[in-house]
Structures are given as structure tokens and as C-alpha cells.
């Protein structure tokens, strides 16, 4: 019998295979999605590059630091595009009663539902995002030693986990307020908020984004971690906090799923 990890990996593999087959049918769409994300990157890069033509630093973030921050924004976004596309459809599918199969629980329902729309084109975007991040890092004169690589792995895993956790957290609202599309709204607001370092926001809002709705995990915290803007002690503590937060959110989601009623299948 397969181990729990192998079972989950096997499901992810099947989703990836299906995603590749689906996208092979829409070849132009494949290119379009890559170009679309490149346009998204370009607009953000130009916005900040033009801003830094007039200023030297924003709340202590130099131009070089901000490029690393943007690299994290892009890596985080690409991860969402690769794996979490289903989050956008949760409200409609919950309303239409299309979640019956999740009751069978071949694996954790969060993995079965949220990871089902694998996007191969976003893998290419992830490569572009990672390349930009590495370029931003190297061009700022930072070293690329094993310790730094370890820090990057930590930061990137945290941004990915942040994406999953908040996508799941927002979807819980749909169980309570059926057909409200609040998960989409909160997702869009979070994307908007995570596009800038939380240091630029008023203190209370920054604290809110760090501890209550930890949008900071998407881009600010990982970038601050690799740039050494936060100490290792706080970084470790915050990571532990966020892991505990994730566990609570997953449990909450499973409890909320009990509210789901459907006559379809």
C-alpha cells in the first residue's frame, strides 16, 4: 500500500499530466499566458524603476532591494498560477455542488481540490521569475554561496506555503456566505497588498498583514529574510508561527466542509 506522501505525490503527478495534455490542445493560449505574466512583470518593474528615478530608497528599500522584493512577488505569483488556479472557481463549484468527490478523501481534500488545475505554462513563468530574482540578487553584489541558497529555499517555500494557506483561508468564507465570491475578492485584495513591501503601510496595517492575515508571507517576509532585513531568530519564530497558522487553517477548512450539502455527484 502506498504511503500517505506517495499517495499525495501521485495525485499531484496525475494533475500535472492532465494539465500538460489540456494545454497541448490550446497552443496559442500557452504562449498567451506566458506573455501575459511577462507583461505583469514588466508593468511592475517599470513602475518601480520609474519611481526610483526620483528617490534613492523607500522605507529603507533601495532599488536593488526592491528588485529582489519584486522577484519574490513574481515567484509567488507563478506558484499560484502553476498550482492554485482552482481557487478562483471554488465559489461557483461550491454553489453548484461539484465537490462531492472530495468526500471520498483519497488524500487531504485541500490538495485534491486546490491543486487540480496544473498549469504548465506557469512553469515557464516560474523560470522567468526565478531568473529575475537571481539576476536581482547577483546584480546587487550579493553572494550566491550554499548558506544563501539555503536561505532562498526557506524563503521560497514560505512564499508557496503562504499562497496555499491564504487561498484555503479565504475559501472558508464561501462555506459561510454561499455564492458571495468573497474568496475571490479577498484574493484580489491580497494580491494588490502584497505588491508593495508592508513597511510602506501604517504600522497597524503592517502588523495585520504580518500576523492576522499573513499576506506578508507572499513577498515581504521572504524578501526581507534573504536580504537580512530581519534577524534569524525572528525569522525562525515567524516561520513556526506560520506553520501553526497553516495547520489551524487546514483544520478549520475540514470542519467547514461539513457545511457542504449537495444533491449532485
Amino acid at each position: 500500500m502506498k504511503s500517505r506522501f506517495a499517495q499525495h505525490a501521485s495525485i499531484l503527478g496525475q494533475y500535472a499530466r492532465a494539465g500538460l495534455a489540456r494545454r497541448a490542445e490550446f497552443r496559442v493560449e500557452f504562449i498567451n499566458q506566458v506573455v501575459m505574466d511577462c507583461v505583469f512583470y514588466l508593468v511592475h518593474i517599470l513602475t518601480f524603476e520609474f519611481l526610483y528615478n526620483s528617490v534613492d530608497s523607500i522605507e529603507g528599500w533601495s532599488r536593488a532591494d526592491m528588485r529582489v522584493f519584486l522577484g519574490m512577488v513574481f515567484v509567488s505569483d507563478a506558484f499560484h498560477m502553476i498550482w492554485l488556479g482552482a481557487a478562483w472557481f471554488f465559489s461557483a463549484e461550491l454553489k453548484d455542488g461539484r465537490l462531492d468527490s472530495l468526500r471520498l478523501r483519497p488524500a487531504h481534500p485541500v490538495l485534491v481540490y486546490f491543486f487540480q488545475r496544473f498549469s504548465p505554462e506557469a512553469c515557464l513563468n516560474m523560470l522567468i521569475a526565478l531568473s529575475y530574482l537571481v539576476w536581482a540578487w547577483v546584480s546587487a553584489g550579493h553572494a550566491l554561496d550554499p548558506a544563501t541558497l539555503g536561505l532562498f529555499v526557506w524563503a521560497i517555500l514560505l512564499t508557496w506555503l503562504g499562497r496555499v494557506t491564504l487561498a484555503v483561508l479565504f475559501s472558508i468564507l464561501e462555506f459561510r456566505f454561499l455564492n458571495s465570491d468573497l474568496s475571490r475578492l479577498f484574493m484580489l485584495l491580497s494580491i494588490e497588498t502584497a505588491d508593495r513591501p508592508i513597511d510602506v503601510y501604517p504600522r497597524r496595517l503592517a502588523q495585520f498583514l504580518l500576523w492576522l492575515i499573513p499576506v506578508a508571507t507572499w513577498s515581504y517576509f521572504p524578501a526581507a529574510l534573504v536580504l537580512g532585513r530581519i534577524g534569524p531568530g525572528f525569522a525562525a519564530l515567524y516561520t513556526l508561527f506560520f506553520l501553526a497558522f497553516t495547520v489551524l487553517v487546514m483544520r478549520w477548512w475540514r470542519r467547514s466542509f461539513r457545511y457542504y450539502e449537495s444533491a449532485l455527484s
Binding site: 522605507e59 494588490e192 508593495r196
Partner: peptide, 16 residues
């Protein structure tokens, strides 16, 4: 929300 966030951004820019 968006204008509010952008305003915070520009406040930080002017302050810096």
C-alpha cells in the same frame, strides 16, 4: 483599497 495602498506608497516615498 488600491488608491489607499498607492497613497501609503507615495507617503513613504515623500517621507524617505
Amino acid at each position: 483599497l488600491r488608491p489607499l495602498l498607492t497613497i501609503f506608497m507615495f507617503q513613504a516615498v515623500f517621507a524617505a
